[in-house]
Design a protein around this nucleic acid. Sequence first.
DNA 1: CGGAATGCTGGAGGAAGTCAACTATTGAGA
DNA 2: TCTCAATAGTTGACTTCCTCCAGCATTCCG
Lengths: 157, 157
Amino acid sequence: MASERDQLAGLAQQVMDVSLWMARHYHQRFAADLGLTDTLARSLLQLDPDHPVPTRALASMLGCDPSNVTPFVDRLEQAGLVERQVDPHDRRVKTLVVTTEGRAMLERMNDIRGTDSPPLQALTPSERDTLEKLLAKAWTAAKAYEADQCARTRAKM
Amino acid sequence: MASERDQLAGLAQQVMDVSLWMARHYHQRFAADLGLTDTLARSLLQLDPDHPVPTRALASMLGCDPSNVTPFVDRLEQAGLVERQVDPHDRRVKTLVVTTEGRAMLERMNDIRGTDSPPLQALTPSERDTLEKLLAKAWTAAKAYEADQCARTRAKM
DNA sequence: CGGAATGCTGGAGGAAGTCAACTATTGAGA
DNA sequence: TCTCAATAGTTGACTTCCTCCAGCATTCCG
């Protein structure tokens, strides 16, 4: 039936539109107020402030090549936001730890995202709750699909 | 109160996560099945199949510089998906019209987005409805904010 | 008619992405 | 133990995308 297909396609378009708008909005704010490129901001947001994260894990979270992450970390380190440390358990891996300054920067980013998100602020608290639940469900489905695909390609080899 | 700020920040992160996942998913599918770069696909999706669209309007819809759009249109035209036509009303503007092939390509893209969207397909039809309504509300708020900002910067001058 | 404004294009420069090759380290088996 | 495959991170060449500035054609307004 064409109607369900069209509904899903339209919904996909809507998700992309809203998120693209927000991404652009934050990008401007982060660049103007914090001097951060959007990729740098995204990298920092993916890190765990309380535990060291291997470079490779960050690359996989960002969905890009590890060789791509190296210059990001270079700049983050240069800005004093993260530190590279050699993992004592496996001296091949370098883990990324967020510095005190990095944590302060994360706090400021959360301030911006939490106080200046026009599309989300237009929703009532209960609407935000339902949106959060729906997105959580969609997200777990995405992760499950990803794990399934991964298992399949491994099985093929 | 910190709780609302954190909720909004988390929600923003969720929106970005899900949409980034979907964008990557479609990117792979479009590239593998249709031979389209994601920016080309996005450009084509923004065009109106039934009415010519000026280059400048496409640039504004994509949120990037008009000079950036030129090479995209070059490739779309080379692929036979759109045609550049001079607007008879104002010979400065070149309008983009989607060819028959372009329409077929759009149909195939909608097929992919409508039948292969794991995160959205995990939702029940009624959940999709509510998601659509919430996103529509957020989207209109974003557009209103944009118009307001635009009016303000104009008033400053 | 003359000058300001607008729309598209071209070029320089920067940021970001992929891919292949390289070094260092680890782990498993002969 | 020694060797060899596998893994983590980095580097390099190369491509794509984006922005800013300059240029050309066209339109609009005084």
